[in-house]
Simulated scan of single mutants.
Amino acid sequence: MSKPSFVYVTYIRTTPEKLWAALTDPATVRKFWFGITVESDFKAGSPWRLVFEDGRVADTGEILEADPPNRLVIRWRNEFKPELKDAGFSRCTMEIEVAEYYPGMGGKAVKLTITHEADAEKGAPFIAAVSGGWPKILSNLKSLLETGDVTFA
């Protein structure tokens, strides 16, 4: 059987460097990720976690790969919902590349591809959860980088 996965692609009018900075800067992440703070130094082998505004840990993991501003891979596990924590670890790959052609933007955009894969079939509930979350988070990220404001508050 194949592992449960979710893939999302979006195009953002920005540079790879600005997108990388937005994905790894705690103050910026807080703006587009509904108040969540990211904690990591974003180096391979380093711990990674997402923390709610009230201090509860949302998710934990480890940076598996970091190639700024092109690729970030995180080993990821939910910590705050027992049924999702029981689903085990997943792997989130964020790939950033210059968009060769983006109508109306003169080619000045980046393609962000998020691939979130469960480590095992039992991870299906977690992949279902991120399938609903990533579109909102990435819509906020795109809006923030392009307009300075978020779509969903």
Rank of each mutant, 00 (worst) to 15 (best):
91 R>C: 09
133 G>W: 12
116 H>E: 02
94 M>P: 00
113 T>M: 09
80 F>P: 00
142 K>P: 03
100 E>N: 12
57 V>W: 04
125 P>V: 08
81 K>N: 07
3 K>E: 09
7 V>P: 00
37 T>S: 10
42 F>V: 04
135 P>S: 02
140 N>Q: 13
48 W>A: 01
49 R>V: 04
41 D>N: 13
76 W>H: 15
136 K>A: 12
119 D>N: 13
108 K>V: 02
54 D>E: 04
21 A>Q: 14
85 K>D: 07
149 D>V: 10
51 V>D: 01
78 N>A: 01
132 G>R: 11
107 G>S: 10
2 S>R: 13
127 I>S: 09
77 R>I: 13
42 F>P: 00
62 E>N: 11
145 L>V: 05
7 V>I: 14
60 T>R: 14
25 D>K: 13
152 F>S: 12
69 P>F: 03
24 T>H: 08
152 F>Y: 15
117 E>N: 06
8 Y>W: 08
125 P>H: 05
48 W>V: 01
143 S>N: 03
149 D>M: 10
70 N>Q: 05
102 Y>R: 07
60 T>N: 04
66 A>C: 01
19 L>C: 09
94 M>Y: 14
68 P>Y: 08
115 T>K: 15
55 G>A: 06
65 E>H: 01
89 F>L: 10
1 M>R: 15
52 F>R: 14
49 R>G: 02
99 A>D: 11
23 L>W: 09
84 L>H: 11
129 A>F: 10
68 P>F: 10
139 S>W: 02
55 G>V: 13
112 L>Q: 03
148 G>P: 03
93 T>V: 12
6 F>I: 01
86 D>R: 15
22 A>K: 14
126 F>N: 14
128 A>G: 13
145 L>K: 03
9 V>K: 09
19 L>N: 01
142 K>R: 14
107 G>R: 04
10 T>E: 08
6 F>T: 01
1 M>V: 12
77 R>S: 08
139 S>D: 10
143 S>L: 03
138 L>P: 05
89 F>P: 02
72 L>E: 08
66 A>T: 06
5 S>V: 03
42 F>S: 02
116 H>C: 05
152 F>D: 11
24 T>A: 02
15 T>P: 14
56 R>T: 12
40 S>W: 12
130 V>N: 12
142 K>S: 10
21 A>T: 11
117 E>Q: 15
56 R>V: 02
44 A>Y: 12
99 A>L: 07
55 G>M: 08
153 A>T: 03
53 E>M: 06
86 D>Y: 00
76 W>G: 06
31 K>A: 06
13 R>F: 01
35 G>S: 12
103 P>R: 05
